[in-house]
Write a protein that binds this DNA or RNA. Structure first.
Length: 547
RNA sequence: GUCCUGGUAGCUCAGCUGGAUAGAGCAACGGCCUUCUAAGCCGUCGGUCGAAGGUUCGAAUCCUUUCCAGGACACCA
């Protein structure tokens, strides 16, 4: 709606400019001015063309606005201000139609075709199944899951995937740790070292095996059985934690399957055949410097075992072979050095390295009483996601995580987060939703039936305008967030809409004797409520019917 | 030493493909409930945008140098 107007203005300006001999080198951009006194939208095109046209910006700007027909562009005013800004004032009555559009489209309002059904694989968390999720995984989970929801809304075909490292060394250590605990339960001698896992969940697994199978594995091959029981136990734990955080993955992809299917072997063979490897000091190296890496990387160690890189190449090739053209990996800052390595390897294999996008999230610190909280009572190590969900709740936690951009070194103040008050911004938004809900409740308790109107007849358009303006921006926010992957802007949007709602609520009595006016106001609020709910759902935060 | 992130109000953070007087929330202070939820609204206070140069009509935003903080520089994953 707003886009149609802006595009039309854009084309008109481009036509005016081309009459003046300007080639299509500089596109017209619109900004929403900070100060409403500068109109609804403004453009700086005249200033940017001053040099090319060798004319003062104000002259150019005036030339433009004199040639724009206001009514056919749904404008009420176009003026030149400042050093040559052109400010546009759009017909408020026309814009208020967005309300009716929202009521018609409901949660589909803001859906875009931008993604054009491109197949996207969004991989995140990918925690080792050897313990609890920690505070950093929480950030990745919140980000990845939110981006999946937002990109779907923007028209991408998104699949979310959790990679399971079930083939490497740490799984071996896990199995041996369980076995040690198993022996311990029978009073046998057992050994745990620095590589072992000491969490109490390992004891639970051993106990489970003891209960179900008794002492059988003290004297029989235990390895494969312990692997499968241990993995499924720990994976179930991960899934449960994530579910409580409102994160459900489409796929859990097994690293081991890449070995079982021979995909790792195939990748190694092809890299060797194509001459991208060489042997040095007994190890096989991959010439990743042929692309952007700063040094070559070992792919087969001198003892014959593989480095992590080998299955990871196979994994990413597998993703590409499944038809995904956009791969997004969400990784912690400690994996930064890995980006070039992986992309270079994919390039050597013949895949498209530009299809791989790695979003790096900076570290999260938990603060309590102004000091960094390092220890978790639960795991004895890092603060776990469960600790946080227990303390602050999933909704508040997701909002806190998402409201900061990924590159921010984040401080999570638990004291603030726990407070069930206006200090936690999620409640501000949920409260806005609940307030509207309560209006509809009161209305229906008075035995009145809400009939959404199709047109505003008695309501002052100016009264609705601040809300309408924010509602109109929703699709533009979706577009920006989906393409630049900045989900924190969804939080900003939700806060902005909630803020306008609270102001409106305070300024106007909604339910009055005047039935017509009441219905029109409720129609407006229904639209606000719809978008509030949808924007929260995009970041995995629920609504509250009542607070 | 090299590379990646940050450094913006007392605190947590937006703004960064250059644009009009630098924003929000919290904290502090002052108002607003005989009216649909005060978890709210309205207002005040608060800034040499780490520092120094440069680019130009214009720089928090771009470039260079530099200082702080976090992270990475494996035949670990």
């Amino acid at each position: 709606m707003i886009n149609e107007i802006l595009n039309k203005i854009k084309i008109t300006i481009a036509n005016i400019l081309s009459e003046q001999g300007v080639k299509e080198t500089s596109e017209v951009f619109f900004d929403i001015p900070k100060d409403p006194a500068f109109g609804d939208y403004s453009t700086n095109i005249a200033m940017r063309l001053a040099k090319i046209l060798k004319k003062a910006p104000i002259v150019i700007a005036n030339d433009i606005i004199n040639k724009i027909d206001l009514t056919s562009h749904h404008l009420t005013k176009a003026e030149v201000a400042g050093g040559g800004f052109i400010n546009f004032y759009i017909d408020k009555k026309y814009l208020s139609n967005v309300i009716f559009k929202i009521l018609e489209e409901k949660e589909k309002f803001g859906n875009l075709t931008l993604g054009n059904h491109e197949k996207v694989l969004l991989e995140f968390v990918s925690a080792n199944p050897t313990g609890y999720l920690h505070i950093g995984h929480g950030r990745g989970a919140a980000y990845g899951d939110s981006m999946a929801r937002i990109m779907k809304k923007a028209g991408f075909d998104v699949t979310t995937e959790h990679y399971v490292n079930d083939a490497g060394n740490q799984i071996h250590n896990l199995i041996e740790s369980i076995f040690a605990r198993y022996k311990e339960l029978y009073g046998k001698e057992f050994q745990l070292d620095d590589n072992s896992y000491h969490g109490k969940e390992i004891i639970s697994i051993a106990q489970k095996i003891k209960t179900e199978k008794g002492e059988y594995y003290l004297t029989n091959p235990y390895y494969e059985y312990f692997r499968s029981v241990g993995l499924s136990y720990l994976l179930a734990g991960l899934k449960k934690d994530l579910q409580e955080f409102n994160v459900v993955f489409d796929d859990w992809f097994s690293e081991k399957s890449l070995y079982d299917n021979g995909e790792v072997e195939k990748v190694l063979a092809r890299l060797k055949e194509s001459g991208h490897t060489y042997v040095f000091e007994g190890a096989t190296w991959l010439k990743t410097t042929a692309y952007t890496d700063e040094k070559d990387r070992v792919i087969i160690k001198s003892d014959g075992s593989l480095t992590y890189l080998a299955p990871d190449i196979a994994y990413h090739i597998n993703k590409l072979n499944r038809g995904y053209t956009l791969l997004i990996d969400v990784l912690g800052a400690d994996h930064h050095g890995y980006i070039n390595r992986l992309k270079s390897a994919i390039y050597l294999y013949g895949g498209n390295p530009d299809a791989i996008n790695i979003d790096i999230l900076q570290m999260v610190r938990a603060l309590k009483d102004g000091e960094e909280l390092k220890m978790s009572k639960r795991s004895g190590k890092a603060i776990t996601l469960r600790d946080l969900i227990d303390e602050v709740g999933s909704d508040a936690l997701r909002f806190l995580y998402i409201s900061k951009s990924l590159s921010t070194h984040m401080d999570l103040d638990l004291d603030l987060a726990i407070k069930n008050s206006n200090e936690n911004p999620v409640y501000y938004v949920q409260y806005a939703y609940a307030r509207i809900n309560s209006l509809f409740r009161v209305f229906s308790e008075n035995n009145q039936e809400f009939v959404p109107v199709k047109e505003f007849k008695v309501l002052d358009i100016n009264e609705t305008y601040n809300l309408v303006k924010v509602l109109l921006q929703y699709p533009a926010y979706i577009e920006e967030v989906a393409t630049k992957r900045l989900p924190h802007k969804i939080c900003q949007y939700a806060l902005m809409l909630a803020g306008e709602l609270h102001s409106y609520y305070n300024d106007h009595k909604i339910i009055t004797e005047n039935n017509e006016e009441t219905n029109e106001r409720l129609t407006l609020l229904k639209a606000v409520q719809t978008v509030l709910k949808d924007s929260l759902s995009l970041i995995g935060v629920g609504i509250k019917e009542k607070m």
